[in-house]
Design a protein around this nucleic acid. Structure first.
Length: 822
DNA sequence: GACTCCCGCCAAAGC
DNA sequence: GCTTTGGCGGGAGTC
């Protein structure tokens, strides 16, 4: 068939392009004016023209686009041309015979002229973006293929991608219906949501992390944790995301769904929608798609095939002007990538509403999960299978999150008003879409929701900490003390005047984030030995946030688009969720490499990325919140109660969506990673009593925290005393706390003392404790000397009343900061 | 030599 | 059993 098609179409093609090759207008213009084009006239003999006037790609492009327009030729005319094609077939053959091989070759349209993108342009030119229902929007593949002079196979490529966006839908054999862009916004919203739920952001980060580690892998070892993640998702797959009323009925859709161009297209789009900036390299996309297939698919041929398909998809998406090709320059050179240029997909309004209110009055759970089910069909077909990025240890966390969520939602003070008018998604995804297994969707939702809740709370409680987020920054600044009354605290994602630094525990599991005064050098901690993390400018902070997206990305420039970075303010909030994937198996090697990278102009690159990432939110501003995450560390035992569990869940979600912070890690696993963003130099970290503000954040849930509700220890007392003294909590208000991190401060700007201790380490009093202790939990590991597991480094009191962190390791979500000695 | 991606084989699904 | 779909990868054109 293909041979026949080619055989007959080539002459036709020539007939079409000949009269148009002299068009002077640009392709785009031609596309616009096609409706006014006159019917094709009899083309001059190619023979006469070719020698003297060789076609240029541009002219051919113009010609082909124009030729493809349905307005140019009426159906009768097309039929006539088709007939003419047969008539001229013989002459063409004669031409071929008369022309030399080279000449005939030249007479053929160039490769570019036959590109899928161009073909798609022609295809799209046939139909209005927003067709009226009254119109006859049927598409007959045979007809289209004939009219566009291409094999039907090529039309399938286009249609499949269009199907993924619900711009067309299959009606019957060889027959489709054109929907145009009517469903596009809904589709994109659905895709974005599914993408978020599917943790594509984390997957991207994971891929980048792997790249990073591989690139600098000294011994060639594969990151076991990462590999395991891939394996665990070996059979993970995601089915086609449908919109109500547009479900696929053909068995073929499902039978080949796993590798369908449709599904691939949707996934590809999802990557853009969840990325910040919305630039996705083919390599990363291919790896993610492969990762969802099978681990063994990582072989080169499969990879190449995936890349081919992505090019196919990208060409169509480019024609739709949803993406645009760019290049990202990394350490290893230039890489092809695409930038999203389509419409901004606003956050799910329902979710937004939920975010805004759920902290105190979440909506009924059934309502909140509805859209999830509706927007994705069989997102996770196999409940037993794990999501791509979901580490096994996440399962428990997710469940606890859900339990907590349910509990919260069932609370008597939880009436949530859902704005019907704004809830487009609900109406957008009615019951027909409710095919997503509720549990997982719910779990995922719980995670994302909690993250959002945290964000909202933070934005409201952490003052102006989020300068890079206009929306957040503009919010009224609540009393500082209010932060303490809130169950959760979130680290402001970006540079702020108050940099969270310490997280003292409370018996209820609430820790506190202490922010460094803006005037203070945003020194967070030090890296041993003799290194210190130097604060980076805001842009750099952003870079830090995404050590994944930046450092790991190693993107230095984005060619072809000076505005590579997204600056859509609407993404600010969601960006908070896009925390880098937790370093699952960070190694010292990474740290070294980080330093190397640092020396290799990373800072400079961050600067170059400043613009592009300007609005990106980070969870690691220069003065930092030190989350004591360990909710899952060890287990559920850490969840002394649901409340705590919930808090922890939220924390995890907020600080490190995905697996970050939730995977039980051994001390060795808690090695530093993603450090490259910091400049490390020796320094003490101290906090001035007058320069700190505290916000409650999730506390750690020590596995052995059964005694967390026990009488307060000195650490708690000191913490309360300190908080009261600095006005962070009203006198009389007592924040029960387990002996944990405290926030002693000094008046010495630029330095801060940190303390960390575990409830189970009574000997580690908040004030002074120099007895090394084997870290048992993540919290303990927060301050651990690099020397070994038996070298917990508690704070030590200075003579001036400040506290000092001795050499050790400070863990921040997803990354470790080595604390050096004085 | 790497990047792009057209082309069409051929198998699965549909009818 | 024929037709429709569409996965797939060779290999050519382009950079």
């Amino acid at each position: 068939l293909g041979a026949q098609e080619n055989h007959s179409s080539e002459p036709y093609r020539n007939v079409l392009k000949t009269p148009l090759k002299q068009a002077a207008t640009s392709p785009l213009v031609l596309t616009e004016i096609q409706p006014d084009c006159q019917p094709l006239t009899t083309p001059p003999k190619p023979k006469e023209i070719l020698p003297a006037d060789p076609w240029t790609p541009t002219s051919n492009l113009k010609m082909l686009i124009s030729a493809a327009s349905p307005e140019i030729r009426s159906r009768e005319q097309r039929r006539e041309l088709s007939n003419n094609t047969r008539e001229v077939l013989q002459p063409k053959h004669c031409l071929q015979e008369h022309l030399s091989g080279d000449e005939y070759e030249k007479s053929q349209p160039s490769r570019k002229e036959k590109s899928l993108g161009l073909l798609c342009h022609k295809f799209l030119a046939r139909y209005p973006d927003y067709p009226s229902t009254a119109e006859n929007n049927f598409i007959c593949l045979d007809e289209v293929a004939e009219e566009l002079n291409v094999e039907r196979r090529r039309i399938y490529d286009i249609v499949n991608v269009l199907e993924s966006l619900h711009m067309v839908s299959r009606l019957a054999k060889n027959r489709y219906v054109w929907h145009g862009r009517h469903n596009l916004s809904k589709t994109l919203q659905a895709l974005k949501k599914v993408g978020e739920e599917n943790k594509y952001t984390q997957q991207i980060q994971m891929i980048k992390k792997r790249e990073y580690e591989h690139e600098f892998d000294l011994d060639g070892e594969r990151n076991e944790e990462t590999a395991r993640s891939f394996v665990s998702n070996e059979h993970s797959e995601m089915s086609f995301v449908e919109l109500p009323g547009m479900e696929f009925r053909a068995a073929s859709v499902n039978s080949r769904k796993d590798k369908s161009l449709r599904v691939m297209s949707q996934k590809f789009v999802m990557l853009f929608l969840v990325s910040t900036p919305q630039i996705v390299s083919l390599e990363v996309a291919a790896k993610i798609l492969i990762g969802e297939d099978q681990l063994e698919d990582l072989d080169k041929s499969k990879f190449k095939t995936k890349i081919r398909r992505l090019y196919d998809i990208a060409n169509v998406l480019s024609s739709l002007e949803l993406i645009k090709k760019v290049h990202v320059t990394e350490e290893r050179g230039r890489k092809p990538a695409f930038k999203w240029t389509g419409p901004s997909v606003l956050p799910n309004i329902q979710d937004t509403k939920f975010e805004m209110t759920s902290t105190t009055c979440p909506p009924p759970i059934s309502e909140s999960i509805t859209s999830k089910e509706q927007c994705s069909k069989n997102l996770f077909p196999s409940r037993g299978k794990q999501n791509f990025t979901r580490h096994p240890s996440l399962i428990k966390l997710v469940r606890s999150i859900e339990n907590d969520r349910r509990m919260i939602q069932s609370a008597p003070t939880s009436p949530v008003k859902m704005s019907a008018s704004s809830d487009e998604n609900l109406s957008a995804f009615p019951s027909p879409m409710a095919q997503v297994p509720a549990i997982t969707a719910h779990q995922l939702e719980g995670q994302s929701k909690k993250a959002k809740e945290m964000k909202m709370k933070l934005s409201g409680s952490s003052l102006e900490c989020n300068l890079s987020s206009p929306e957040v920054a503009s919010k009224p600044e609540p009393p500082r003390s209010a932060a303490l009354t809130q169950p959760l605290g979130v680290c402001p994602p970006s540079h702020s005047s108050l940099s969270p630094v310490i997280l003292p525990h409370t018996h209820s599991g609430v820790s506190y984030a202490v922010y460094l005064q803006p005037s203070q050098p945003h020194t967070v901690t030090t890296y041993n030995p003799g290194f210190m993390l130097q604060p980076l400018p805001r842009a750099n902070v952003t870079g830090i946030k995404s050590i994944n997206s930046n450092v790991l990305n190693k993107i230095t420039t984005v060619e072809g688009d000076s505005q590579a970075a997204t600056d859509d303010p609407t993404k600010s909030l969601t960006a908070k969720e896009r925390l880098p994937i937790k370093s699952e198996a960070p190694s010292q090697r990474c740290l070294k490499r980080s330093q190397e990278l640092q020396e290799n102009n990373l800072i400079k690159r961050y600067k170059s990325d400043e613009e592009s990432l300007d609005t990106s939110l980070t969870f690691f501003p220069s003065g930092y919140l030190i989350p004591l995450t360990q909710c899952t560390h060890g287990n559920k035992a850490g969840f002394a109660n649901k409340e705590r569990a919930g808090m922890c869940s939220v924390q995890h979600t907020a600080y490190s969506p995905a697996i970050a912070g939730v995977i039980p890690l051994t001390a060795p696993e808690l090695k530093a990673v993603n450090i490259p963003a910091f400049h490390i130099t020796p320094l003490n970290i101290m906090l001035s009593p007058t320069s700190i503000a505290a916000a409650p954040v999730l506390s750690n849930s020590c596995p052995n925290s059964s005694n967390t509700s026990s009488a307060q220890n000195p650490g708690s007392a000191i913490m309360n005393f300190t908080l009261q003294n600095i006005g962070l909590i009203p006198a009389g208000v007592h924040v029960p706390a387990t002996p944990a991190q405290h926030t002693p401060a000094s008046s010495q700007p630029g330095t801060a003392s940190l303390r960390s201790e575990n409830v189970n380490l009574p000997e580690e009093k908040p004030s002074v404790s120099k007895e090394p202790q084997e870290p048992h939990t993540a919290t303990e590991n927060f301050f651990r000397t690099p020397g070994g597991p038996n070298t917990v480094s508690p704070l030590s009191a200075n003579s001036d009343g400040t506290y000092r962190i001795s050499q050790g390791t400070l863990y921040i979500p997803q990354r470790k900061l080595e604390v050096s000695d004085d």
